[in-house]
């Protein structure tokens, strides 16, 4: 998941060390631009397009990873 973490750190404009499964997205300004950026990131890293509404409902980084795992399963 390191490419995902690096990408999320870039989107949230924070150091990669701050991205962990338990990290709360609300703390990183989880707005529509961040959601769109994450959707594009997951497409680039994992080759899957997430559902925007499902992604918007994610609360932690682990939730995003679970959504990706579900889509790539």
């Amino acid at each position: 998941m390191s490419a995902l973490y690096a990408g999320l750190a870039e989107i949230f404009e924070v150091d990669e060390s701050e991205i962990s499964p338990a990290a709360e997205l609300a703390a990183f300004n989880w707005d529509s631009l961040a959601i769109i950026s994450t959707l594009a990131l997951v497409d680039e890293v994992h080759g899957v397009l997430l559902d925007g509404q499902a992604l918007a409902k994610c609360e932690t980084v682990a939730d995003i990873e679970a959504l990706v795992a579900k889509e790539t399963a």
Binding site: S32, L33, I35, I36, L39, A40, D43, L49, L50, D51, G52, Q53, L55, A56
Partner: peptide, 12 residues
């Protein structure tokens, strides 16, 4: 506009 949906449509 549903930005994430439009993004997903475009990339797909």
């Amino acid at each position: 506009m549903d930005g994430p949906a439009v993004m997903a449509f475009t990339l797909g």
